[in-house]
């Protein structure tokens, strides 16, 4: 159960090897979180992540989970909830894709959408329904500023996040009064393995800073969290720029 100060006892991560998610798990394990479930594609990286979190004192399980295999979601995640209540679900999986080559390879582009949007719709609903049955819990969805206004440079990825963001907000409204809370997190450029080797964007941040914002957001029951917080104002400006101006600004 979450306590009066917003500390959770149990955490389920979808995309259990995500740098942002693991930074969040570390922070929570240092607090009152004692049960962590990492749902992810099996790999040496996953095992290493589980080992590392155990060293932080948490009980850690791993569960085989592929965002693309939507038919399997109910079974894989249902078993996690059957074993005990989950206070916080962190939906963290995602792929960036390669915009330039994906534009030439529509099947590859569709796979980005399949993972980031379709996979999230299915697994998000499975978790939301389980949380609703419990009568409590938070679903944290890692969206992105890239979904706020599509840019020429990454509109395939950006559009999947726009879809995910809209889905998560609607889901949150549908769960209002059910005891379940949905929190949409919109980071800017985060220095994680997803962006390794890329040139840093302005206002870039770290997985740990995102983790801190997530924990703080859970505490106050926030519905939307920007990381860094200043992005909220930057994006609200960008959002209203006329198209020709935006095209120029977004190029840089």
């Amino acid at each position: 159960m979450k306590d009066a100060l917003g500390s959770a006892q149990s955490l389920l991560i979808l995309g259990g090897t995500s740098d942002i998610a693991l930074a969040t798990a570390r922070r929570m394990a240092a607090g009152k979180t004692t049960r962590i479930v990492l749902a992810a594609r099996p790999s040496a990286r996953l095992d290493a992540a589980a080992r590392e979190l155990r060293a932080h004192g948490a009980e850690v399980e791993t569960v085989a989970f592929d965002a693309d295999a939507v038919e399997e979601h109910e079974k894989a995640l249902g078993a996690v909830f059957a074993a005990g209540d989950i206070d916080v679900v962190l939906l963290a999986f995602g792929v960036l894709g390669d915009q330039a080559s994906d534009e030439q390879d529509p099947v590859a582009a569709a796979k980005v959408a399949q993972t980031n949007y379709v996979g999230a719709v299915s697994s998000g609903l499975v978790c939301a329904n389980a949380l609703k049955k419990q009568g409590h819990g938070s679903l944290v969805v890692l969206s992105s500023v890239a979904g706020e206004r599509a840019r020429r440079a990454n509109f395939i990825y950006g559009s999947t996040k726009a879809g995910l963001d809209a889905f998560a907000q609607g889901l949150g409204d549908s769960l209002h009064g059910s005891g379940v809370h949905v929190m949409v997190v919109r980071p800017g450029f985060v220095e994680s393995k997803m962006t390794a080797g890329m040139e840093k964007a302005p206002l870039s941040t770290t997985p740990d800073a995102v983790a801190e914002a997530i924990v703080a957001g859970l505490r106050r029951g926030a519905e939307i969290v920007w990381v860094p917080a200043a992005l909220r104002y930057v994006l609200s400006g960008l959002r209203h720029l006329p198209r020709p101006v935006f095209r120029k600004v977004a190029q840089r």
Binding site: M1, L5, G177, S178
Partner: peptide
């Protein structure tokens, strides 16, 4: 929300969002 669970109304049956006197950690039962 038309069918929204009432928070502070202590009468009646059905699904309701309940908390203690400190008004923290509400859950539905």
């Amino acid at each position: 929300q038309p069918g929204r669970a009432a928070e502070d109304d202590d009468s009646g049956q059905g699904p309701r969002l309940l908390s203690g006197w400190g008004r923290t950690s509400p859950t539905v039962a």
